[in-house]
């Protein structure tokens, strides 16, 4: 019942995650952070089983950071995504696989090339221009298909994101009330507001 969204624009990735922590039928928290910074330019967003997802993502976060320290330069988005995939794929065949669905958004600090990766709990990794994780897929993919352009600027991407969020508000049974919006570009990751 969680939703993650991502839109890759011309030189940035705009992402949104709901801020709702749910246990059974209870909304436990309305300002839950479902993202982790892997390094200055790569953001990992997760949804799935509560404990699993935080545990797994923090494990990935620390290893990506360790890798950056050891080598002296940070992991690229692609490398981080593939590292995550291998870890999740190995866990899939273990006794207790992590039940976690991910979006990985990143932007190369030198070239400014944005990248967005989609990965499910089975560890199928796919690079996509726009991606939705969770039930939101059934509501937002069509909206994205219709309005998405690869050369979008931030304002246009924000407008599209608003359309998607609105679609969820109108059609999805859960009231998310709050979303966290973040932009990943070559200058780093920053939280923004969709006015």
């Amino acid at each position: 019942m969680e939703v993650l969204l991502g839109i890759q624009g011309k030189d940035f990735v705009l992402v949104a995650s709901d801020a709702l922590a749910i246990t059974s039928i209870v909304a436990m928290k309305r300002n839950h952070n479902k993202t982790r910074k892997l390094n200055d330019n790569v953001l990992l967003m997760f949804s799935g089983e509560g404990g699993d997802s935080v545990q797994f993502c923090e494990f990935i976060q620390r290893n990506v950071q360790l890798n950056g320290i050891r080598r002296g330069y940070p992991l690229s988005t692609k490398a981080a995504a593939n590292f995550t995939r291998v870890e999740l794929a190995e866990s899939l065949r273990s006794r207790h696989p992590y039940q976690v669905n991910l979006l990985i958004a990143g932007c190369d600090p030198d070239t400014g090339v944005p990248e967005l990766y989609w990965m499910d709990y089975l560890a199928s990794l796919k690079k996509l221009p726009f991606a939705v994780q969770g039930y939101g897929q059934y509501f937002c993919n069509s909206t994205m298909d219709r309005y998405y352009r690869p050369d979008m600027n931030l304002e246009e991407a924000k407008a599209l994101m608003k359309k998607c969020i609105n679609e969820l508000k109108v059609r999805f049974i859960i009231n998310f009330s709050d979303f966290v919006f973040q932009v990943v570009d070559k200058d780093g990751i920053k939280e923004i507001k969709l006015e």
Binding site: R85, L122, A123, S124
Partner: peptide, 8 residues
């Protein structure tokens, strides 16, 4: 087949 296994 299953995409994750195709990739692995």
């Amino acid at each position: 087949g299953l995409a994750t296994d195709v990739q692995t």
